[in-house]
Amino acid sequence: MKKTDYPTWEMYSRSLTNEEYADPTLVLDELFDFAHLPEWRTLLWDWLKITVSGSYNTETTAAERASILCVYEKLQKLIEASHLLYIQQKTSKENTKEKERHIF
């Protein structure tokens, strides 16, 4: 699906706080305060195994299910913060190109 197929409101954050929206790098701090890189690899692997095997309700404890939901929320924020950084960088590059066109 192309970006233009979405309503405009879908392009905005749903889960970032005002503070995180103003400084998306705060989401990275939160992400790695929650778990270090090796732990994230394990969390993602466990999430994949549970999802693919279909054992979410049958072989996982309540604590494991809560952890999976927390991982989802963290990844949602990470994607939204990354999108915000992407848009900021893209806009900055476009502004630089526009300024260069006016100079020459």
Score class of each variant (00 low, 15 high):
S92N: 10
H83K: 11
K90E: 15
E100W: 03
N18K: 03
L78S: 11
T4I: 14
A63M: 08
E10I: 02
D5N: 15
K93T: 06
Q89G: 05
A35W: 08
T25S: 00
D29H: 08
A66S: 00
L75S: 05
A81Q: 09
T96Q: 00
I87K: 05
A66V: 00
R101E: 13
T25C: 00
R101V: 11
N57S: 07
E94F: 04
E94C: 03
E10P: 01
A22C: 09
E80I: 13
N57R: 12
P7H: 07
S53K: 10
E73D: 12
W45Y: 05
L28H: 01
T58P: 04
T60E: 06
D5V: 05
F32E: 12
L44V: 13
W45Q: 05
L48Q: 00
L48T: 02
T17K: 07
N95P: 05
S82M: 12
Y86I: 04
V52W: 15
E64N: 06
L78Y: 13
E19N: 06
I68C: 07
M11W: 11
Y72C: 08
L37A: 13
I87H: 05
E30I: 14
T96M: 00
E80M: 00
W45E: 03
T60K: 14
A66W: 01
Y56V: 14
T17E: 00
E98T: 01
L31A: 13
M11L: 15
E94K: 13
L78G: 07
